[in-house]
Amino acid sequence: QEELVKAFKALLKEEKFSSQGEIVAALQEQGFDNINQSKVSRMLTKFGAVRTRNAKMEMVYCLPAELGV
């Protein structure tokens, strides 16, 4: 569980995922086979993730800066 949270936060820091499906796929690539869209959705809510525009003006998920991840 701890490893999943770390990987999840690291992915969001990249600010390149525009959908929950993309986050699920990226986590599965890292070996988290039991991850699915509903789990990702709950984690996004739990950590207060928001959708914002990145440098390329794409809408992407990211974590609020005050979490200091």
Rank of each mutant, 00 (worst) to 15 (best):
L11S: 02
Q1T: 12
K46R: 11
F17A: 04
V69A: 12
K13V: 09
T52V: 15
K16F: 05
A26M: 06
R42N: 13
S18W: 07
C62V: 14
M59F: 12
A55Y: 04
M43L: 13
S41L: 08
K13M: 14
L12T: 01
V60T: 04
L11C: 04
V60Y: 05
L4D: 01
S38A: 14
Y61P: 02
A10F: 08
I23T: 01
Y61S: 02
S19N: 09
F47N: 04
I35S: 01
G48E: 05
V40Y: 00
A25H: 10
L67D: 15
E2A: 13
A25P: 00
A55H: 10
E58H: 05
S41W: 07
V5F: 14
C62R: 06
T45Q: 12
T45S: 10
V40H: 00
N54V: 03
M43H: 01
E22R: 05
N54R: 03
D33Y: 12
Y61L: 04
K6R: 12
K16M: 07
S18A: 11
N54Q: 02
M59H: 05
Q37R: 15
C62T: 15
Q30P: 00
Q28H: 10
A55S: 13
A7L: 07
S38Q: 13
S19R: 09
I23P: 00
I35V: 12
Q37P: 10
V69P: 14
K46V: 12
E66G: 09
L4N: 00
G31A: 02
L12C: 04
G48P: 02
Q28I: 13
E2L: 11
K9Q: 09
G68I: 10
F47P: 01
E58Y: 04
E2W: 12
I35Q: 01
E15I: 05
K46P: 01
L27H: 00
D33K: 13
V5L: 12
R53H: 12
L27Q: 00
F8R: 01
A26C: 04
A65H: 11
E14W: 07
L11G: 01
L44F: 03
A55N: 09
M43Y: 05
V50P: 02
E58N: 05
E2P: 10
T45I: 14
V60I: 07
I35G: 01
M57Y: 09
A26I: 06
L27W: 00
L12V: 04
F32Y: 08
A26N: 05
I23L: 13
F8A: 02
F8L: 09
G48M: 04
I35E: 01
M59C: 03
R51A: 05
Q30G: 06
R42L: 13
V24T: 07
N34I: 05
